[in-house]
Every structure is written in structure tokens, then in C-alpha cells.
Design a protein around this nucleic acid. Structure first.
Lengths: 225, 225
DNA sequence: TAGGATTTGTGCGTATGTATT
DNA sequence: TAATACATACGCACAAATCCT
């Protein structure tokens, strides 16, 4: 008898989700920088499928604003101009605060455990700054904060806007002359301050701190770009 | 020589947009009620294309939360439970108010003209209430109000949430025993009040009125459902 | 329980559009 | 300007999954 993991046959939907998450992470972690051309054929071969199901994934990513396909030319990772990016950030500020007001829920024990791990990763990064690890930690911390609200539509929208903007910000951070160590220090203070607000039980304050840091990081990006 | 319309060859992208908007409107105007099964083959035949490009459109609509495809079963118009609908409406309230604060722009002459036409359509509907015309007018008025903000990401999100929720509300309205004439009267007053706020130049007030009406319409739906 | 009918998902060859030589 | 190379878009046949008899 088999008492191992559910062992559900990998359905078409699972394959879709796996490829979608994988390619999305590559885009958001700058493995594929803005402007990069993606090869349908190469990606299909990598995942062991034909172009048809892969194109479904690319179509979804295009709908999410991360890719753009042009007939006869290619499929490219999107890059946005500073104007629309400003609008997106203005909106992200408001939505970040909303997460602390709409259906805000206190962290459970599992989330506390994740926050402790994230804090430790942040401390470790101070001693050994690394762009890739910083990008991963930044994303994981953002996704953990989203678990503080129970409003599913709000979570989806915040996640979507984060994926659209953070890669542009990361690109700017890594391209600027500023030492990455500075950004890591600032981020570690953000983690520290937010966790302290959560320990007090002030979810709205935590959201406001996040809002402030999003605003400041955007300002730094604008100056260094 | 040909001085007629631009006569641009209908590109693949144009066909995609046309089919997408057409099917989306059918869903949101209740031609396809929640739970309805859509036939890929029938729709492909209707638009004179093969299943492949049509499936691109269905995939996009699935990403927008309007459809859900299940392997071997069919493609169905989504229907949402009251719980998530409540969360979506809470979010829509906040976003509606944000449109009056983030990059709010006063209407230009073209928009004023559209508002006058919409107001006339509303008055005409009072004398001859009709569910289909009411649904169309409701959508057109909402889209006109979105033109009061220049924040593109905010517009996209508001539009997306509107398409997800208004069809559920319309279904509830049409299914309840309440005379449609009552809803038309209430809507006409909303149009009147918002236009008066706009004439004064108070964009925030206009957004607040819209917010109030969204809130009240949801409350009516909950009671009649 | 088994098998056939129906529907979505996949693979692949071809058509169409674009850029470059 | 024409031809060639290469990319995405499309159409069709078949596989896989589900439902019902």
C-alpha cells in the first residue's frame, strides 16, 4: 500500500501553474531582465512540452502585464516608462494601507514562524549582501505580509502590482552605483519595524510602515535612475 | 483612390480584442448567465476561426475571473459565493473613492457630451424600463466615470472588478420580485447627483456619491437574494 | 462495471508577419 | 526592391479526462 504523498497525477492544470510560477519568478527575480526576448521553442523544450501549452502560459503572463508578444518579432519582457510606474506606485501606496484596514487578521503561529525565518534571513544578508538573495527575500517578505489580510481580491491585486513593479525597482537598484549593502540595511530595518508593530498587535501601523517604505524606495529609485 | 476608413487589415490582435470584448459583454450583460457552459466549437464557428485563437480569448477571460475551463467537462461562466463577493464589494468601495483622489481629471467637452447622452438614456429608460437596456446603460455610465481619473492601473482594476461583480448584481436584480422600474429610478437619481457634483467641479464628491450607491446596491442585492 | 459520447488539452505542420541583407 | 531567415499565429488531428448509459 502507498501511504506516501497524495501522488496525484500531474494534471494539465498543475503543469500550467508550475510553468507559470517558474517563468514569472524568473522575470521578477531578473533572470529575464526587462526587454529580454523569450524563445517559445527553447522554453517548451526546457519543460518537455510542445509550444501549445507553453503559449498558454505566455498568454497568461501577457495578460498580467509581464510579457508582450508581437507577431513575427518575438515575445519580450515588458519594461515600463517612469510615468506609468509613478501611477502604479501611487496606487500601491493606497492598497498597502488598505491591507491593514480591510479584513486584517493577526498572524497565526505558522506565520510568526515564517516571519522569524525571514528576519533571520535578513540579518544574514547584512553580513553577506547578494542581489539575487535580496530579491528573493524581498518577494518572500512581501508575500508573507499579504497573509495579514483575508480579502482575497485585494491580495490578488497587490500581488499583481508587486510583480509588475518590483522588478523595475530591483533593476534600478542593482544598476545604480549605490552599494547593495545600503538597501539591505534599509530593508532589515523595515522588517524589524513591521514585526514590532505586529507584536503589539497594531496591524494598521504595520501597513503604514510598509506604505512608507514603498514610498521611500520609489523615491530612491527615481533619484538613482 | 480610396479615401474611406483607414482600411487597416484586421490584424490578429484586432480579432483577438474584438472577440474578447464581444464575449466579455455577453457575460456581463447576462446573455451568458453565471453557470452557463460555452462551446468552444460553436463560438469558433460563429467568429469564423478555428478553436486555437478562440481558446486564446477564453484563456484571457479565465485569467480575468469570468470563465473557468475544466478538462473533459467544459468551459463555464463563473458564479461567486456571497462571501468573496462581499470582499470584492468592500474593495470596490475603497477604489471608487480613490478614483476621486488619485489623478482625478475634470471632464473635457467630449466627456460632457457623453454624460448628457447618458443622462438622456436614463430619463428615457424611466418611461420604458428594460433589463437589457438597463444593463447596457449601467455599464456605459460606469466606463464614463472611469474617464475621470488618469491613473491607468487604477482604471484597469476598477474595470476588472466591475465586470466580475456587476453581472452577479444584475442577475440578482432581475431575479428578485422588485420591479425593475425601482432600480431604474434609483440609478437615474445617481446619475443626476453625480453630474451635479461634476458641474460644481467637486470630483471627490462625485466619487463619494458613486461609492455610496455601490454600497447601497450591494445591500439591496443581499436582502433580495 | 464497462464502454461510448463529448469536451478540453496537446502536438505539429503550415500560414502570416517582420526585419535584415 | 526583392529575397531570405525567423518569429508568432493558426488549423487540424489526436490524446486525455469526464460523464452518462
Amino acid at each position: 500500500m502507498n501511504f506516501e504523498a497524495p501522488e496525484t497525477a500531474p494534471s494539465a492544470r498543475d503543469r500550467f501553474e508550475r510553468m507559470h510560477a517558474a517563468i514569472r519568478n524568473r522575470i521578477c527575480l531578473l533572470d529575464y531582465a526587462p526587454g529580454t526576448r523569450l524563445s517559445e521553442e527553447a522554453l517548451a523544450a526546457e519543460y518537455g512540452v510542445s509550444r501549445t501549452p507553453l503559449r498558454r502560459v505566455l498568454g497568461r503572463l501577457e495578460g498580467e502585464g509581464l510579457l508582450q508578444s508581437v507577431h513575427g518579432v518575438g515575445t519580450f519582457v515588458t519594461d515600463v516608462e517612469i510615468g506609468e510606474l509613478t501611477q502604479t506606485y501611487q496606487l500601491r501606496l493606497e492598497l498597502a494601507e488598505l491591507t491593514g484596514k480591510l479584513s486584517a487578521v493577526a498572524p497565526d503561529e505558522a506565520l510568526w514562524q515564517d516571519f522569524r525565518t525571514l528576519s533571520a534571513r535578513s540579518k544574514a544578508l547584512i553580513d553577506a549582501p547578494d542581489p539575487r538573495r535580496f530579491a528573493e527575500l524581498n518577494m518572500d517578505f512581501f508575500l508573507a505580509l499579504l497573509r495579514l489580510t483575508a480579502n482575497e481580491p485585494l491580495k490578488e491585486i497587490c500581488e499583481r502590482l508587486y510583480f509588475q513593479t518590483t522588478r523595475i525597482w530591483l533593476k534600478s537598484v542593482f544598476a545604480s552605483r549605490i552599494d547593495i549593502a545600503d538597501e539591505v540595511d534599509i530593508f532589515d530595518r523595515e522588517v524589524h519595524d513591521i514585526l514590532r508593530a505586529l507584536e503589539i498587535g497594531d496591524l494598521h501601523a504595520a501597513a503604514l510602515i510598509q506604505r512608507a517604505h514603498i514610498s521611500m524606495s520609489f523615491e530612491r529609485m527615481r533619484r538613482n535612475a
